[in-house]
Design a binder for these strands. Structure first.
Length: 595
RNA sequence: GGGCAUGUAGUCUAGCAUGGUCAAGGCGACAGCCUCCUAAGCUGUAUGUCUCCGGUUCGAAUCCGGACAUGCCCGCCA
């Protein structure tokens, strides 16, 4: 909250004035205010609810409050039925808004440091093959949240939790050791993850048809866990008496696949600060601490040598014995499970930040709830906050790697950029190859990210090329286009206007409306970040771009004969450019200067 | 069997925590706008039992109860 922001201070002042009037009328309730969408006022007080408290008609209350507040140069009030409409003084409010924005034009919307450290875990896909779009929302949502919270003022670290201890990873590693490359088909593309996934697939097939292989892999997995637990990564691990692999080999395989996956993330504009390996919590023994901690919980039970927390009292549903809520943390043989390692990771993570946020698919809701309960049993001060997203499905049903009903993220990225390139080429024939490809990349990838973020994560999405790569209407290119128009005007003018604009020269409705829309940017960022409502940003940007387009249509800038007015309009263009760029940046979308 | 999530024009989405002045946009459809700072733009028209049934209220897309539909989950797997 920036008290020097007129958009905030006007509202606060009006609220205070109403509150004071309410007190005089003997009304204790908090004033109910809203911003009318229809635009007949900037703010309005709704008095119906407090009518009972005073015995007065709602319309009468509005009148009384208006009288009590009296006149104020900042606004005019109008009682209208049960509403008290407050309209900010156009000249004064526009001037203050403009001045405020102009002061911060270099870094609009940047919140002051909160001093809070936030760790955001996202993506965390199993490192056994390329990303497919069923889960592509995860890195986009996660990375956007990272950017948004940084803009808000938090210190943010992004983490990828790498599952390098599971069966899938062992299947992959086994495949690399046992399947001759000659038996593999051609890779989908020249990229480490596409190369390596063939070993995983081939090993999977082998395992399905051969129970010996299955047993061997299970045994390897168990011995692998032991080797890591003993901090002996060089030990040669056997399966069914056959020495096969070392823990280092497994890690190497994982790193190799991951390197390919990171290439895709880079292209998407997604950056991860830290990769935390699952094996780390085993190696550093923090897993053992967690297991011992859980054993002390009053909820801890044992059955056939396995240990678990009985959570049936803490979780809804499941009276049936078959559906008991149990958080199993050691097997009968004493070994740990994935969830136990995840718990150790979270315990470590929470100790290193003020707040942890996880981005997870909706299939993890139940697991995540258990994890939080287990964390509380460990005496953890906090639990992670989770952003869940629904899966992306294909028009014919869900995506399935096994049935080959998948769209790979890499293919989606290629297609996005290719379609963007066609559009650019339609319009421009004067670009260098470098310009063409950087614009296509920005537009294609931007369109994709924008379309993911503009819908709330919990809503299901059906993947359709036309929608995922929508280039018009409410889309990234629409916003980028307005930005390019702004850049074009400034470029054409030659020198960047850097004086002091006289906002009172703004007279056209569309230019005033533009300035006021620009003024809302900090509040939008604040609300989107604090309430984790990322979709508010694209929504706002479309509104801003649209407002800029209206201005562009109605108000000639360079052709304006009055020099002072021209300069003021130039200032408006500079602000628009700056905020459009910053807003897109918060979504991880680049804003080309031309397109 | 149970838990959780979602349900808004042909279609996709916003609005729902704090009920309130005409349910807001995009796509698609139809009709227009480039001698003028990039038409990826702009203007206009048509299209709605806000899934259904009850309840609370002066007032419900919004709150409560109950249905229905769809998705996800309920392993000593990850």
């Amino acid at each position: 909250m920036d008290p020097s922001d007129p958009a905030i201070s006007y509202e606060a002042s009006f609220r205070d004035a109403v509150q004071e009037a309410y007190l005089k009328l003997g009304i204790a309730s908090r004033p109910i205010m809203e911003r009318p969408r229809s635009g007949q006022a900037d703010l309005c007080l709704v008095t119906f609810a407090v009518s009972g408290e005073t015995g007065l008609e709602p319309g009468k209350i509005a009148e009384e409050v208006k009288e009590l507040i009296g006149s104020d140069p900042r606004w005019t009030l109008e009682a209208c039925g049960g509403y008290l409409n407050c309209t900010f003084d156009p000249v004064r409010f526009v001037k203050e808004t403009g001045d405020h924005l102009w002061k911060r034009r270099k870094d609009p919307g940047q919140g002051s440091p909160t001093g809070k450290k936030v760790i955001i875990e996202h993506t965390s896909a199993n490192p056994n093959g390329p990303f497919h779009v069923g889960r592509a929302r995860n890195p986009i949502i996660g990375d956007t949240l990272v950017r948004l919270l940084r803009l808000y003022g938090h210190e943010v670290e992004s983490q990828y939790w790498v599952n390098d201890m599971g069966k899938q990873v062992m299947i992959l590693a086994w495949g690399i050791k046992n399947i001759p490359p000659g038996e593999l088909g051609e890779p989908g593309r020249e990229k480490a993850d596409h190369h390596m996934v063939r070993y995983y697939q081939a090993a999977n097939e082998r395992m399905e048809s051969d129970t010996d292989v299955q047993e061997e892999i299970n045994e390897l997995l168990r011995n692998y866990e032991d080797a890591v637990g003993d901090q002996d990564l060089g030990r040669i691990i056997s399966g069914k008496g056959r020495p096969v692999i070392t823990a280092s080999d497994v890690r190497e395989a994982v790193r190799e696949v991951l390197s390919g996956m990171v290439v895709s993330l880079d292209r998407l504009g997604v950056h991860l600060d830290t990769f935390v390996y699952e094996s780390q919590v085993v190696e550093d023994r923090s897993l053992q601490d967690v297991i011992e901690g859980l054993r002390k919980s009053p909820l801890c039970r044992e059955e056939d040598g396995a240990s678990f927390l009985d959570l049936s009292e803490k979780m809804k549903g499941g009276d049936d014995d078959k559906y008991k809520r149990r958080f199993v943390f050691t097997r009968s043989d004493g070994s740990a499970l994935y969830t136990t390692r995840d718990l150790a990771y979270h315990s470590w993570k929470l100790s290193r930040c003020d707040r942890a946020i996880n981005v997870l698919g909706e299939d993890h809701r139940y697991q995540s709830q258990m994890l939080s309960l287990a964390l509380s049993e460990l005496g953890s001060t906090g639990v992670p906050e989770v952003v869940f997203y629904a899966f992306v499905s294909l028009p014919g049903g869900k995506m399935s790697t096994r049935r080959n009903r998948v769209v790979f993220l890499d293919d989606l990225l290629d297609e996005a950029v290719e379609r963007a390139r066609e559009e650019v080429e339609k319009r421009r024939d004067d670009l260098t190859t470098g310009e063409l490809s950087s614009i296509s990349e920005a537009v294609g990838i931007g369109a994709l990210r924008f379309n993911v973020i503009k819908v709330q994560p919990e809503k299901r999405m059906v993947f359709r090329w036309e929608e995922a790569l929508n280039f018009e209407g409410a889309s990234a290119p629409f916003v980028q286009y307005s930005h390019a128009r702004a850049c074009s005007i400034i470029k054409k003018h030659g020198v960047e206007f850097d004086g002091t604009p006289d906002w009172s020269l703004l007279v056209e409705p569309s230019e005033i409306s533009l300035l006021r829309t620009l003024g809302r940017f900090p509040q939008v960022i604040e609300e989107a970040a604090s309430k984790r409502k990322m979709h508010l940003v694209p929504l706002y940007l479309v509104e801003l771009a649209s407002s800029f387009n209206d201005f562009y249509r109605d108000c000639p800038v360079l052709a304006e004969s009055n020099e002072d007015r021209r300069d003021t309009r130039l200032a408006l263009v500079v602000l628009s450019r700056s905020i459009l760029k910053k807003g897109l940046g918060a979504l991880g979308i680049t804003a080309p200067e031309q397109m």
